[in-house]
């Protein structure tokens, strides 16, 4: 456990903030760190900035993230990691599909891909315009961004998968990357596969130890650990994960089934 301080806090949306930490990092996009608030809890968070000063981008939605939202510049947090397998850049034309707070690791991937001279298109979705994340950041580095909102306040009215289906009718991509609600990722996987585009998926499970020893984040079908063999999986691996899109396990290990949004 290393302790670092918060260097900068950026308000991204009404409930989402980015925390830039003093500690420097050289990670792979898609990797996560365990963030500790002393006497509160420790949670896994994907890096939204993976080079130089590390950054995490967090939606305040529970006891831990609400506490994080109360922290100020100069406050201390503990860090373990980066852990896990990140995204691998494959080909020249990349398509990113991010829903809600699934966008941060994809933004880190976009940074890396653009620096490597890749062509990047990103579909960014949220419930409403004010919740859209990193649209400016992505456009500023040269990513073509297509937005969509459930209520139609920005971009296409509908889901990322609707935008995806449309663009795949017209254009070809070498690799697709997705992070967001699991049901959305399941559909992204399906649409991309129909067009023969390989997809890399960032999975979320209840991670406790982060180092592959406690077994809490194990997925059925393969017995792999999301914290160690993931969180990023290739489509061919995801197809062997029998619980993908169906259920996950809570803090006790009890199966919780996903509800389909539509």
């Amino acid at each position: 456990m290393r302790v670092t301080r918060i260097k900068e806090i950026r308000k991204e949306t009404e409930r989402i903030k980015t925390y830039i930490l003093e500690e420097k990092v050289d990670a792979i996009p898609g990797q996560f760190v365990m963030v500790w608030i002393p006497d509160v809890d420790e949670k896994p968070l994907s890096l939204s900035y993976h080079k130089g000063n590390m950054g995490i981008t967090v939606l305040a939605q529970g006891p831990f993230t609400n506490k994080l939202a109360e922290l100020r510049v100069g406050d201390k947090v503990g860090i373990r990691g980066p852990f896990g397998r990140g995204f691998k850049i494959v080909g020249d034309s990349l398509l990113l599909v991010g829903g809600g707070v699934g966008v941060p690791p994809l933004a880190a991937l976009a940074d890396e891909a653009i620096q490597n001279g890749k062509k990047v298109t990103a579909i960014v979705g949220a419930i409403t315009k004010s919740e859209l994340l990193f649209v400016d950041r992505l456009e500023n580095i040269g990513v073509r961004v297509l937005t969509c909102t459930d209520d139609g306040t920005c971009g296409t009215k509908g889901f990322t998968t609707d935008v995806l289906r449309d663009i795949l009718k017209k254009e070809k991509f070498d690799q697709c990357y997705t992070c967001g609600p699991e049901i959305m990722m399941l559909k992204v996987l399906y649409e991309a596969k129909k067009k023969g585009i390989p997809t890399q998926i960032s999975m979320e499970r209840y991670i406790k130890c982060g180092i592959g020893i406690c077994g809490h984040c194990i997925v059925d079908g393969t017995g792999q650990r999301v914290c160690k063999e993931g969180p990023v999986f290739r489509d061919v691996d995801v197809e062997k994960i029998s619980e993908f899109g169906k259920y996950h396990r809570d803090a006790s290990g009890t199966k919780i089934y996903f509800r389909n949004r539509k």
Partner: peptide, 24 residues
Amino acid sequence: GHKSPTIVKEEKGGLISAIGLANP
């Protein structure tokens, strides 16, 4: 089970853990 951190690495060759009997 217990709140995290549930595991901490002891640099001198071990782990200290307190998962708290998490089980379904």
